[in-house]
């Protein structure tokens, strides 16, 4: 298990499938059965057309780096060691999600926008596994 001082999510009934998925090394998104919209974060209806008929599916776990900052300020005991990236990845399926880019120096030179990335998973508790992303080339 990794350190767990960082704030960890508490799943709700609407998001449990996502966190069950990361524990099993899967990035689970939702798709609307009516209009085919793929969306994130989880909810039991489509944000595009309001249909309640939606399905969970395993996404590819691949995407590109959309934007980020490199945070240089984190108090001791926060669970974060600066500098570290706080990034938003655009998934190949469309939605964007926040994450950390790992396995690469936390520098502007190493973190190029639009570079391909893939999900990696880190267990923090028996219940919670966070999805991080690393450059695709590093796999």
């Amino acid at each position: 298990m990794a350190e767990s001082r960082r704030p960890l999510p508490r799943p709700t009934p609407e998001t449990q499938h996502f966190w069950d998925g990361t524990r099993e090394r899967e990035l689970r998104l939702q798709r609307c059965d009516a209009c085919s919209q793929v969306y994130f974060p989880p909810r039991p209806f489509c944000p595009a057309c309001a249909s309640r008929k939606v399905s969970v599916f395993a996404a590819s776990g691949r995407g590109t780096l959309y934007s980020y900052v490199i945070n240089h300020r984190a108090p001791p005991g926060s669970g974060f060691e600066p500098p570290y990236s706080i990034a938003v990845v655009e998934l190949d399926e469309g939605p964007r999600m926040m994450t950390n880019i790992v396995g690469v120096p936390q520098t502007p030179e190493a973190l190029q926008l639009d570079m391909p990335v893939e999900a990696v998973y880190e267990d923090f508790t028996d219940q919670i596994t966070l999805p991080f992303f690393r450059p695709l080339e590093a796999s």
């Binding site: 960082r6 704030p7 508490r10 709700t12 966190w19 934007s67 945070n71 974060f80 706080i86 926040m98």
Partner: peptide, 24 residues
């Protein structure tokens, strides 16, 4: 939703959050 899908990645208030879009 912020607690589940943003805070775990180290957003620490405005300086490290409000700023995220700007590189794009």
């Amino acid at each position: 939703l912020q607690g589940q899908f943003e805070a775990p990645f180290g957003t620490m208030g405005a300086p490290s959050t409000f700023t995220i879009p700007v590189l794009r």
